[in-house]
Design a binder for these strands. Structure first.
Lengths: 254, 254
DNA sequence: TATCTGTCGATTGTATACAATCTCGCTCCG
DNA sequence: CGGAGCGAGATTGTATACAATCGACAGATA
């Protein structure tokens, strides 16, 4: 979306900082001062400052009243809500895609991606397969978004997915790790196919409902991950979550 | 949302620049260079630079490949989509509000605002009445959002509403100007009441549908405004719109 | 004449010096 | 002994000097 900072130092500062935050190199709630970052990155204040501002707008950092920042913590509810919002927006994308009647060629691209994923989910799990699936999954979601033909919607979704745990690929590996025992991944793939079908037939309401429900797989995967710490640690940005109870799948909410 | 820049020059640069953009002081598509802004504002490059970055993230400015920015233009479709997205997100807010069962006190606040608006829409139009309605309308929407109890949703909605024409109050005066002849304003107020009722009864689906439809009033008001230039000029940021045909209310889209 | 290249100008990116502000701690006075 | 005020240190905000990059224009050569 954003043509991005145009210079090396800015890009480096932004990427490195984001990486550091996502790697949990700042204690949660710890105050992050500009100067400290400058020292750690070896980049001067100006680009660092810019990176900090951007990360604040992306939601990773919170500005402190006295100046400086701190790494933003996310409650479990925040994470669940982010997934919910992604579902709502992807639902809107699917509906608009259906309503705006993509051409046969446009649709074919999405169908091709979907078909490719079909052939992947039946393979036995491996590092390589996971990577392929992950890439195709990302492509599917971005193609779907493209079919909505709405730059504004893309913008909103991008803003939400800037949070790493809200991206469509955030929990794929959980599904994969689980796929030995369950068919959750195949189920998700089935939803992909249904979404494509609904769009192809111009069934906006169905497409929306399906896409929304599809996003909620992430919720289930999150619950699974929380029960298995070996998986949980692989959730991008999981240390940004406040320590809290496992999500309550039987709860009244949502 | 953002604890905001902490200093005077930064704030001034940001506000003044935003104001200038909204006042149409930059030709649409015109290249905006940092130095030019510095000269016009009499503020040094550092705070100006920061303000430009923020405005880029807010969607008012587009970064140019060769450096510099230009004022972002919005197509008619962009404006309609922004309204649509606001509807989708406010719909989600209304649904969550219903599902999360607000306490009687929380609900009472919303009901009070709604009641106050009831007594306003029957008054004859005036500058003062318009202002009162506008404020109450804004309060209604923010109270509704609060009832969803989702900071993440608030964040997403705030991001969308940063665009002036996507805010709930963007077109109120159109409805007012029209209210001499039609009851569009009373109709909108009726929707408010229905939304409150649905939330009170825990009817999430109904609340969502109502809130979504409610947002689409803005679409109709936009169409009206485009037919009457005296109103159109009062739409916030209307000069950001590309010159284009009036919206097609009979069109297939949407 | 067309194209390629080199130089000049403008504009942005980076670094740093300087100013203002805020915090924390110490001391002094009540 | 406690509180208030003052001051030192640290940290952020501002401005500007300097470097690097990009584009345009012009001139030369094929």
């Amino acid at each position: 979306m954003s043509p991005a900072p145009r210079s090396k130092q800015q890009i480096q500062a932004l990427y490195k900082l984001r990486e550091m935050i996502l790697a949990g190199e700042f204690a949660p709630g710890e105050r992050v001062s500009e100067l400290a970052v400058v020292e750690r990155l070896g980049i001067s204040r100006t680009p660092v400052r810019l990176a900090l501002t951007i990360l604040q707008h992306e939601g990773f950092l919170q500005g402190l009243p006295g100046g400086g920042y701190r790494v933003r913590e996310f409650s479990l509810q925040d994470v669940l809500d982010a997934i919910e919002i992604r579902g709502v927006l992807e639902g809107a994308a699917a509906r608009l895609a259906a309503e705006r009647r993509p051409s046969a060629e446009e649709l074919a691209e999405l169908q091709a991606t979907c078909a490719a994923m079909d052939s992947i989910v039946i393979k036995p799990m491996s590092e390589e397969v996971l990577e392929q699936y992950s890439e195709l999954n990302g492509r599917f979601h971005s193609q779907l978004l493209a079919l909505s033909k709405s730059p504004m919607l893309s913008r909103s979704l991008a803003h939400v997915e800037a949070l790493p745990f809200a991206s469509p690929n955030a929990f794929v590996f959980v599904g994969f790790a689980q796929s030995e025992q369950s068919d959750i991944l195949k189920f998700g793939q089935h939803q992909h196919a249904d979404i494509v079908e609904a769009i192809a037939q111009g069934e906006g309401g169905r497409a929306e409902a399906l896409a929304r429900e599809h996003a909620r797989l992430a919720r289930r995967n999150l619950a699974t991950a929380q029960k298995r710490m070996d998986l949980y640690e692989k959730v991008p940005g999981s240390f940004l979550f406040e320590a809290g109870a496992a999500p309550d799948e039987t709860g009244a909410d949502g």
